[in-house]
Amino acid sequence: MVVRAAYTFALVLAVACGAPVHAAGTLNIYNWGNYTPPALIQKFEEQTGIRVTITEYDSNDTALARVRRGGHGFDIVVPSNSYLHFWIDQDLLMPLDRAVVRGLDNIDPRWRDVDFDPGRRYSVPWLWGTTGVIVDTSVWDGDIDTADIFLDPPEPLRGRINVIPQMSDVMHLAVRAAGGEPCTDDREVLQAVRAQLDRARHHWIAIDYGTIDGFVAGDIAAGVYWNGAALRVRLARDDFRFGYPQTGFPIWMDNAAVLADARNPEAAMKFIDFILEPEHAAMISNFARYANGIAGSERYLDEVMRDAPEIRVPDELADAGRFSVACPREVHALYMRIWTEVLR
């Protein structure tokens, strides 16, 4: 009730002062940590008069749990492709308003009609990337396009490997290295994966998100990492290279969508249309160092990103990339069990 009164008071005040900035209201974005460029937000605020707040999350599960609980007050969320169908099935998202979101044709044809959101009815690309391996080539300069970097590491890398704590990505890499399909429940494959991981984990020093600082300072010499993060590491110290395991690696895409219970759907739709502009998509890429899915954004990209090997998957390895998918519950439970054994 106090909140309500304060709100009314603020409203009265805003109207009385005729504050033009508040006329367009506020937009509450719920996005991954360190993923939204301040410059982009500033430009949007100046153009529209809408005030933007950003709240950050660190995993799809966190975002999902918080939004499902209700009362969150967010307008925009950025789920990964493997979770998106669940957001849609649960009616958590609002279909895009084509009258406002007119830039859908800017989406690169590759990302326009995707399995996880057929016809792009609910979401637009934010950024996409791959999960592979990163290696300090001053410590080891052999072949890095292999999952052996973390599954059966060469001697110099042992004890200096960090693996990101993302069960689905790590299992995707490990299962495909063992010759299985993503989300397989083939017990032979899984038993092999389990044994492999049990041997490998002794060579890992941490299972953490890893800081760029940790790589640069030499705490970590190799590991499982995201391509854009690997690019940031290379820019900080040139010894690092990103490898695409030829046995298979996951591709993911985070997608901006409007929440079904958004407080300010109009502002949210405006923002969705705003980030479909090639120039704005490039701002997001330049900030987070991942590729976006907007055609024509290339010419706005920073020099370091345009031909970066972390961003451009080499042609001969492109086929090894596969979209990450959310595994069925029983399979997920099996994978989780193997993963918990790794963490013990």
Partner: peptide, 21 residues
């Protein structure tokens, strides 16, 4: 612990997060 040496609290968090259990 670097996420490698889980304790009970971390295991519980895992189940409410990625574990979805």
């Amino acid at each position: 612990g670097g996420g490698r040496n889980l304790m009970l609290g971390n295991l519980i968090e895992l189940q409410f997060g990625q574990g979805r259990n």
